[in-house]
Design a protein around this nucleic acid. Sequence first.
DNA 1: GCGGATCAC
DNA 2: TATGGTGATCCGC
Length: 741
Amino acid sequence: MEESESTSDNQRPWQSYHTVYTNAKAGMDGVDKEKVQRVVYEMSKGSKYFENEERKESFIRQKIEHMRARAAKLSAADLSHYQKVVDKRILELEASRELSRIWLHVDMDAFYAAVETLSDPSLKGKPMAVGSMSMISTANYEARKFGVRAAMPGFIARKLCPELIFVPTDFKKYTHYSDLTRKVFQNYDPNFMLASLDEAYLDITEVSKERGITGGEIAEELRSRVHEETGLTCSAGVAPNRLLAKVCSDINKPNGQFVLPNDCIAVMTFISSLPIRKIGGIGKVTENILRGVFGINTCEEMLQKGSFLCALFSPSTADFFLSVGLGLGGTDKPEARFRKSISSERTFSATQDATLLYQKLADIAEMLSADMQKEGLLGRTLTLKLKTASFEITNVEVGTTKCPKEEVLWVPQEDSSVQREPEDRNLDSNKEASTSRNEEFFSSNQMELLYWVDDYKCSLCGAELPSSFVEERQEHSDFHLAERLQKEESGADSRAMMPRQRIYPKDPLASQKLSRICYPRIPSVPVSQLSVSPLQSSSNRIPPKAHLNSLQKGTKTKPYNETTSKDMEEAISTIPSMSDILASSRAQNLDLQLQTVGPFFRITAKSLESNRELGRAEGLIRVWFGGKILHLDSIRLKRDTLSMERSIFGIGLFIGAVAIRYGYDCGCRTAELLAINDSDLYHSKLVRFYQRIGFKTVYEVTGSTIGDMAHMLMWGGIGTRMDASIEELLVKWCRRFKSQD
DNA sequence: GCGGATCAC
DNA sequence: TATGGTGATCCGC
């Protein structure tokens, strides 16, 4: 066998070059596959792409060999053990079989190509492909007869079919037609799942029951309505679950449909001879492995080889294979799905021009940033993807606690390329930046959704507050805002309620210089380290109930800044002492420490349980003409704080309160900060947040005037300069720090 | 948590 | 001349 294969390789080398292009696709029945294979091989041979494909193939062959060896090593005892595992698992899976629902999968026929033909009827009947010389997105059925298909580079397609017409992609058009199809789908299942622009899953169980018609009849009707609405044809599959429905929609493509009845025997018969490659999720590699290692070709064989699959694959993968063998698939009601990542990438011709590469990176970052702002998204993990001229792909991720982004991302990337393959470093051809990582991604738009359901319940957490509780409601929405900001910030770059230091150096020298001026560092061994508690007596404390009452009276019905001076006098007597703040922070299991060096201070918050640092603030007491000013440089909260029950008020505000109280004790009357403007979206929220705390805008630093330069040197960026009266801050928030007794 | 790989459209 | 862009998931460390 080996012999004859290698001989045929020598005579017909193209047979050993495995591409996805020969994989059976609708409309490719009469194609001379041998010829296609040969042309693809001839056009690819010797290219960097080809070499990379061979490298990948050889890797897969190794993997197969390795798995074969492992399979051969399994003892009879092992196999009988795994057989028991499989038998049990199959019973469990079988028990979960759900035959009561009818799923329909719709798939538009050659969608992009069909849309283009609609807008330019002269294309009708001619071989045509949507895409470019580099890559084809879709080919119409005339082109498919030549072996031209999606995912094939255009220059190869042209070789296969010289008269092939190329049409550039135009997503606006496709989206328009996709919208039209959705309006039709809506009538059959308001919760339909869109799989892409041209594919959808519909649960037609209800509609079938209500109208007393079969799934097949619904499919017919839906398809003809799609045609009426769009002038396009589509194919449909009807089956008891989504996995099978998808397979079915492909069977009578184009402009056809196939119904698999909700009947266990029918399903098992259908699946028994089905090639595994037809199943969504089983691609070229998995197919090769399953065939090469276990000789599996059909879904039925998954069950026969179940013990091997369980022995060699992870439980979740083995489960998937077994359910495929049983013809099981998703039947559940779709849950709302949120995007988990957003990305932007570009391929460009190889270059060794570092400046150009940096420029490309900057451009891509800009595009990504724009896309994110459009959707109001923030990210937590930033990934740089690099594709070299030899098609090798490298990813570098950074959690966003590190900064600055560009340096962290880019410099190590270059270095690692140097180590691995020096000659490739200068041939970088593709970069992508993306942000992602599962639940750590979220939309900041969601923050705006706080409203009072029935004018009574908080839409975000269900807390109940009647409308007469004006102050409480304000505070409650502050809480959610703060919570959101805290989450976003500890994800974005750990800057929390106060500005972090940030500067955009033009050159290294400038950077050094600026950092000396702006960011005095507190020595790692503090000259004076004091626990804050002994600093203050609680002499000016009054019983908690009393000051709570007086404050509520004063502020309940009017905003704070309208507080009368008499209220103020009353209130001042109620401002929390340092020990008030510390006592209530300890009640939250927080250990606050204040360190000072000359004018500089640092406040750290640790968890009393874990002793881990949860956040810190830095700043200095600045002497100015009118007196002293508390200058807040940054408050940072650690990611750990996110998982805690506490709100930002529990940590950020405690840290802030210690800073403010420290400033008060030092004789400062004013606190100043800069709400840094990284993005407009975030900035406006930050400013609003500070405003609610009690800060007022004094100046917009835009960087457009010489005067702004001084601010930027001072603060390290552009943004909104804000001040607050320290006394007012203490009064405003004193209820937070009332004693726990 | 990170980086590589696979898959789908 | 020339082999894409976007998003998701899983595995192994």
